[in-house]
Design a protein around this nucleic acid. Sequence first.
DNA 1: GAATAACTGGAATCAGGATTCCAGTAGAAT
DNA 2: ATTCTACTGGAATCCTGATTCCAGTTATTC
Lengths: 192, 192
Amino acid sequence: MEGVFHLSSEGRGLRADAVRNRRLALEAATALLAESGAPLTVEAIATRAGLGAGTVVRAFGGKGALIDAAVSGLLGPMVERGRDLLGQGRPLDALRAFLAELIAFQSAHHGVNDHLGGLDLPETARLRAELEAVVRELVVRARAEGSIRADLDPGLATTLIGETAFAVARAASPGLAEAYLAVMIDGLRPPV
Amino acid sequence: MEGVFHLSSEGRGLRADAVRNRRLALEAATALLAESGAPLTVEAIATRAGLGAGTVVRAFGGKGALIDAAVSGLLGPMVERGRDLLGQGRPLDALRAFLAELIAFQSAHHGVNDHLGGLDLPETARLRAELEAVVRELVVRARAEGSIRADLDPGLATTLIGETAFAVARAASPGLAEAYLAVMIDGLRPPV
DNA sequence: GAATAACTGGAATCAGGATTCCAGTAGAAT
DNA sequence: ATTCTACTGGAATCCTGATTCCAGTTATTC
């Protein structure tokens, strides 16, 4: 219950092979998250990593914590990217760009959408909340600018965007993202 | 492998208590489908129905077939309702009305959205395809009428609507359905 | 109201997957 | 180089939930 948290730093404990194996387990889990029909069982992760099942479980203290770390590693950069976009260009353009990237990202990691039910993923939940906060800020700014209809509550608009973008990403149908962006952005505009 | 299919009719086999218990199992499963966090295990269904686990499993030949029957019983009327709407009013109004009902229905049966992964549900799949066909027909007619932008492929529009409506329903957030309909219907209109 | 056959409850069994355990192995320290 | 200990593989175990089995019960038939 001690060395579990240092993935690479903090010189003390953690033998060299342990450090390497934690990295391998994390990489294997991340790879499986990118594949649509992949099982995402401990056994599958272990095989992919070339490790024993026990080692994979122990690496982060349990399967849940491992998956949490893997998903967080994917989500973290998206949050940063969103923060960057907050300062650039017109809010509605930034929103459109962010949604496009978010959908592309989630489509490329289809597994993030399946299999995750019933798992306790605190860090993932935190990053999702941050992602939503970024979208909310983009919505608020676009609305202040007059690019989004005023009869729409910003919180509601944020939820709407989050849920539908997620659905579009999970469908992963060619051309769907473009159609979604065209329709949604148009629909969000103030009615003529 | 014989009596499995008659739920109530066809005089032959099937003892009276068997008929009653099939109905009870189906009702219990349907009730659990309406509850968000409900387990939907054989044990839970059996308890709810006041039956033994074995009886529940045997009722339809397995858990999958039971759930398939329960979901189909919910979906069937929605398909009929969609068919009715096909003949009424302007296509875009019919589409809006159908989506509103679909979302309300799915929100009221939250469980239909969870738990169903990994189950083989042939009849449910068939009805889902029929639902999609209805939406597609509504889209095609609205497009022919000029109510939906011509630069959008009808198949893509259908997928877009299906996926996003599903997502809105599963979120089950108050006011979200109205916001969705306003934004989506507006966004689908030809750009000014 | 027997006789028969269908059905039932629930215990036993099976199945799939996460976790734990431990004998063996390999990094670290001197 | 030797000792010490952390770490590993993978078998054993545990857990959860579906299915099967069977002794007992109940509907049906005559």
